[in-house]
Amino acid sequence: MGAIIFAAIVVAIVLSVAVVANLAIGRIIHWDIVTVLGSIGFVFLTIGRRFKTV
C-alpha cells in the first residue's frame, strides 16, 4: 500500500510541475499525452517501489 501512495504522490508532483512549466512558457499541453505518461509513470513507480528498486 505504501508503494501505491508513494507513486501517486510522485506522479502528481511531476505532472503538476509539468503543467505549470508549460503554462508559464505559453504552451498548451495535450491532455491525452499527460494521461498516458502519468499512468505509465504511476505503474512503473509502484512496481519499482514495491520491489525496492526506486
Results as ranks from 00 to 15, higher is better:
F42E: 06
I25Y: 09
R49I: 01
G2Y: 11
F44L: 15
I28C: 00
I5A: 10
G2T: 08
L45M: 14
I4N: 11
I29V: 12
V36F: 03
G41Q: 06
V10N: 06
I29E: 09
I33H: 08
F42T: 07
A3K: 00
I47Y: 09
F44D: 12
A18P: 10
G48F: 13
T35R: 01
F51M: 06
I13A: 13
A18F: 08
V14S: 15
G48L: 09
I33P: 02
T46C: 10
I9N: 02
I9Y: 08
K52C: 04
V20D: 01
N22S: 14
F42A: 04
S39V: 09
T35D: 03
I29F: 04
A7C: 10
I25P: 13
M1E: 03
V54N: 12
A8L: 12
S39Q: 00
I25V: 12
L45C: 12
I25T: 10
I5F: 12
I28Y: 06
R50P: 07
A18M: 12
L37A: 07
V20G: 01
L15Y: 00
V10K: 09
I4L: 15
R49S: 04
N22K: 00
V19T: 05
V11W: 04
G41P: 08
H30M: 11
G38F: 02
S16H: 09
T53G: 06
R49D: 08
L15C: 11
A8I: 14
I33K: 07
I13M: 03
V19S: 00
L23Y: 01
V20M: 06
V36Q: 05
V17R: 08
R50Q: 14
G26V: 13
A24N: 02
A24G: 03
F51A: 01
I13F: 13
F51W: 06
W31E: 03
I9R: 03
R50M: 15
G41F: 10
V14N: 12
A18D: 13
A24S: 03
H30F: 13
V14T: 12
K52I: 07
R50F: 11
A8D: 02
G26A: 09
A24T: 03
S16W: 04
V11S: 04
G2S: 07
W31F: 12
F42M: 14
R50H: 15
F44W: 10
I5Q: 00
R27L: 15
S39G: 14
F6G: 01
L45E: 05
G26D: 13
F42L: 12
M1F: 09
R50T: 14
I4H: 14
L15Q: 04
A8K: 00
V34I: 03
V14Q: 14
S16E: 12
T53M: 14
H30G: 10
A7V: 11
G2F: 05
T46K: 10
V10L: 09
G48C: 11
D32L: 00
L37Y: 08
G48D: 04
R50K: 14
V36Y: 08
A24E: 00
V54E: 10
L15N: 09
A3M: 05
T53R: 14
V20R: 02
A24P: 00
F44P: 07
L15R: 04
G41S: 11
G26W: 10
I29L: 12
N22M: 11
F6T: 09
